[in-house]
Design a protein around this nucleic acid. Structure first.
Lengths: 353, 353
DNA sequence: TTGTAGGCGTTATCAC
DNA sequence: GTGATAACGCCTACAA
């Protein structure tokens, strides 16, 4: 099980350079107090032998791995992909490496996927001696997070700083990075109303997940503010992917055509894509028959047909802030950063503007 | 810089259970020789204190981290996303965690991206004490890999097993997992020819990258086999993303309409999407005016308009094999696995069939 | 400026 | 079946 190839140690470097171990250690750690000539010579030997200090030994003494653990449900989902991309990049910038845990499923030998409880991942993460953990999504996105799970979260946080990208959880000690879930929806509603739409729908999002209810609530609230009634049959949650948008739209289209919404807000670009595809399959055009705008922009949606009108949620910024928050926590600060961005409406074709 | 929260050690567990350290160690490692009653009691204490053995200390003695390093250029690219997803999942299945390194760029404080030479990543990876490394793409995909880079690769492999998903490199000692780059192209050519196309083009792919030349070569070769001349102006490499497909198609459309290809093979679904969008912007329909098929299927392409005809390259299988190969190498075997799959043509709308 | 020595938390090898 | 004890490779007082 172990690599048989030998590793050179600090002792050998010391010997070959004719100095003590401590001196080598000093040059490794850029300690000022070492004679320039010696330093240079030692550095040469180090380079020559391609020596790398053992992270194990280092970890033993300073209890630090320079690794962070990142938990997310599905790296395949563009929202998480872009977020993680930024996280990894920014973490590396600060010389932290990233251990990724995809909690949604792990595929077993037979190709079947099976789900492990997130608590199991906490254990694994802990064993990896990460310096901090970042939770980008998963159980924490649910409306009802079970008390035992919160307790597990607290237990984890007790051992290592954990930052959660999401809404504050009652009784949870972890650090939270909250983003406004509703803001964007209202701007889409405004946009649609300005375009003269009266009947507007909302599709996508898994029921029981915070972002779903936050956005549908915001939708209803804003519609009410304009005195436009929301037909509850036009609010069709499902999930976050293209097939879900497809299904949701098909369900919407069950209704008589003359009461159909003239505009629909989609949870994200994948949902929008699925919905528009469903329309097409029912000989309906977007935006002519039903206009569509989405709450979360994914890459290359400006190349779809029609080009998608969406909200830029600034995920890069979010990812960077999350790492920043974690680093500050790992440095012992309890200060909570707050995210401060306004989603930007990108008007393209699908909304019909 | 260090977490101040204290960690409980094996010694404390031993003390609290009134046994020696060795005995605790035995129950931790499921050694058979420990009295059932003691084992149970010790396990209780372990659970009670939520004790986790230190990976550092363990690593020190058995020189193993149970971590693997994964190098890829861009996690945002669906090809790598799906590959990595499978890799991570399957690695975890075998109780390996995954350290991801995105080599394309790291964003700095000012949001600018900068590229680090891949050799730098080798160093970082080595410092992390991974048990093996998996290279999914990057420099190794180039047609001319520089000798110094190959040397760096060999140096890395000398310290830790490295598996490369890609074509064998002259003089490189690493293990390779080769997949057929050409096979799929020929089946698309057959398909188009069967549909009666005479003038066929190829778009996308960065010049100087193996997969680009492999596929364009295969394209030319197969066309020749059917006695169909390839107009070199109809072979337009660019890159692998949607904007590149867009540009390539625009370039193609510069030509007089009556000599335009009637069918085009795209490097992958993103390129196809961009190309079709460009057609639309020039009032050309797909597949009526130009049929399109892509060499690499990405998720949800069946929801695009038109639905994309593409090749399923079985990336999940590839990812699993890569991990398998690495595990076997980490266990000391030098045996090379060989990949054995035939890309499957998924006929949908964009090819006009 | 440099070297010596103790300790970090495990596992493995011995005795018992 | 159980318990000392010597590594493992590095860092950091402390001494010189």
């Amino acid at each position: 099980m172990l690599t048989l190839k030998t590793k050179i140690t600090i002792a050998e470097i010391a010997e070959k350079s004719g100095v003590s171990i401590s001196t080598v250690s000093r040059v490794l750690n850029n300690s000022p107090s070492v004679a320039p000539k010696k330093r240079e010579k030692i550095q040469q030997i180090i380079d020559k032998y391609n020596y790398t200090p053992s992270a194990f030994a280092r970890g033993m003494v300073n209890h630090t791995s320079r690794n962070i653990g990142v938990l997310l449900p599905d790296i395949t989902n563009p929202y998480f992909t872009s977020l993680f991309n930024e996280v990894q990049s920014f973490a590396m910038q600060n010389s932290y490496a990233t251990l990724l845990f995809n909690t949604m499923f792990v595929r077993n030998r037979k190709g079947h996927s099976q789900q492990l409880p997130e608590e199991e991942y906490f254990k694994m993460i802990l064993e990896k001696q990460v310096d901090g953990v970042l939770i980008l999504g998963g159980n924490i996105d649910k409306e009802d997070v079970s008390p035992p799970f919160i307790q597990a979260l607290n237990q984890l946080h007790q051992r290592v700083p954990v930052v959660i990208v999401g809404s504050k959880l009652e009784g949870c000690d972890c650090l939270f990075l909250e983003r406004d879930l509703k803001l964007g929806v209202t701007s889409i509603v405004h946009h649609f109303i300005a375009l003269g739409h009266e009947r507007i729908g909302f599709i996508g999002g898994e029921p029981g997940i915070r972002i779903t209810s936050a956005r549908t609530d915001a939708f209803r609230h804003e519609m009410a503010a304009f005195g436009k009634p929301v037909d509850e049959r036009h609010v069709v949650p499902s999930d976050y992917y293209a097939p879900d948008g497809y299904k949701a739209m098909e369900q919407l289209l069950q209704e008589p055509r003359d009461t159909l919404p003239t505009a629909v807000i989609a949870m994200n670009d994948m949902v929008a894509t699925g919905a528009i595809r469903a329309m097409k399959d029912h000989e309906l055009l977007c935006p002519q028959h039903i206009a569509v705008a989405s709450c979360d922009q994914f890459p290359y949606s400006e190349y779809s047909i029609p080009r998608l009108t969406s909200l830029d949620q600034h995920n890069e910024y979010l990812g960077r802030m999350a790492v920043l928050q974690l680093i500050s926590a790992m440095n012992g600060s309890e200060e909570m950063l707050s995210i401060n961005h306004v989603p930007k409406l990108i008007v393209r074709e699908s909304c019909g503007a």
